[in-house]
Simulated scan of single mutants.
Amino acid sequence: MKNLLIGVALAAFGVTPSFYLISGSDARAGEWGCQVILCLSSPGGPTQYAECRPPIQKLWRELAKGRSFPSCSGAGFQASRPGYEPYSCNSGYRLTKRYGDRGLEASCISTTPQTVSNDECYSENRGGSTSPQWRRSGGRVVCQRYVTTRPNVRPQPHYVDVTIDGVGRQRVWY
């Protein structure tokens, strides 16, 4: 397993030793914290390799219990405080939050105006930043507005930002 984890780290940061995470004399790949760091540095994801699944699953369990990120002697990394973001938006949309009748409500709003039914531009109900407007697009005039949709609910809403050797930053969801 040690050779696989070292190979993962080398593949993640290239073969050049200057980007190598851990010096062989200072850290052992058998240490749980060091295993976590090596697995997180995998370009294919932290659980790409079967050997990485147990230490990463243990990491998720420990973080979910409020425990701190594990340490690894000889590795230069930092972990942020745990964060919580239960919602995400599809590409082309940004997450917005506001207080409504049911407390804090989240929605996704398109980053560019989208073409909608012409009936929306003829309607008397206008006003606000998402109001439909006539716009020129592709040589013709179309009705467009910023579209809102429901956000996606993340299966793992908690996260920690990990910075490895001050170079690679990764958000770990659990």
Rank of each mutant, 00 (worst) to 15 (best):
V142E: 08
S91F: 12
S91V: 11
D101C: 12
Y87L: 10
Y87Q: 14
R135A: 04
P132K: 00
N90C: 14
N90S: 15
T96D: 12
R150T: 13
R140N: 07
P82R: 15
Q144H: 02
R102H: 09
C143R: 05
L95A: 09
Y84F: 15
C121V: 09
R145H: 03
N152T: 10
R145N: 01
G103C: 02
P113F: 05
P132I: 00
N118H: 07
E105K: 02
N90G: 15
Y93W: 08
R94V: 14
S107Q: 14
R102Q: 07
I109T: 07
G103S: 01
K97I: 13
P82Y: 14
K97P: 01
E120G: 02
S117E: 06
G92M: 05
S117G: 04
E85Q: 15
T96N: 12
Y93R: 07
N90K: 15
Y84H: 15
L104D: 00
A106F: 02
T112Q: 08
K97C: 12
V147D: 00
V142R: 09
T111G: 02
I109N: 01
V147I: 01
G127F: 09
V142P: 02
L95T: 10
V142K: 06
E124H: 03
T148Y: 04
T149W: 05
Y87S: 10
G92N: 07
Q133L: 08
S131L: 04
T149I: 14
R98N: 09
G127C: 11
G139M: 09
T148A: 10
P113H: 04
L95Q: 11
G128E: 09
A106H: 02
Y87C: 09
R145V: 01
I109V: 12
G92T: 07
N125S: 10
V142L: 06
T112E: 12
Y87D: 10
E85K: 15
S129W: 08
C121Y: 10
G139S: 05
D119R: 04
P86I: 11
G92A: 06
C108I: 08
P86F: 10
G139L: 07
N118I: 05
Y93D: 08
C143K: 07
C143A: 04
D119P: 00
S91Y: 12
T149N: 10
C143W: 03
P82I: 15
C89Q: 14
S117R: 06
G138A: 07
C89A: 14
G92I: 05
S110T: 00
G138V: 03
G139F: 08
S88K: 14
S137G: 03
D101A: 15
Y122W: 03
E124D: 12
V153Q: 05
I109E: 05
C89M: 13
P113L: 11
Y99N: 11
N90F: 13
S123Y: 01
T130W: 00
R136L: 02
S110L: 00
S117L: 05
S123E: 03
G83I: 15
Y87T: 08
D119V: 02
P82L: 15
E105A: 03
T148L: 04
S91C: 06
T115V: 14
E124A: 10
V147C: 01
Q133G: 01
V147W: 00
N125C: 07
C89N: 14
T96H: 13
T148G: 05
T148E: 13
T130N: 09
R98L: 09
T130I: 03
S131V: 02
G83C: 15
Q133M: 01
V153S: 03
V142S: 03
G128A: 09
G103K: 01
R140F: 03
G139W: 06
W134K: 02
T115Q: 13
Y93C: 08
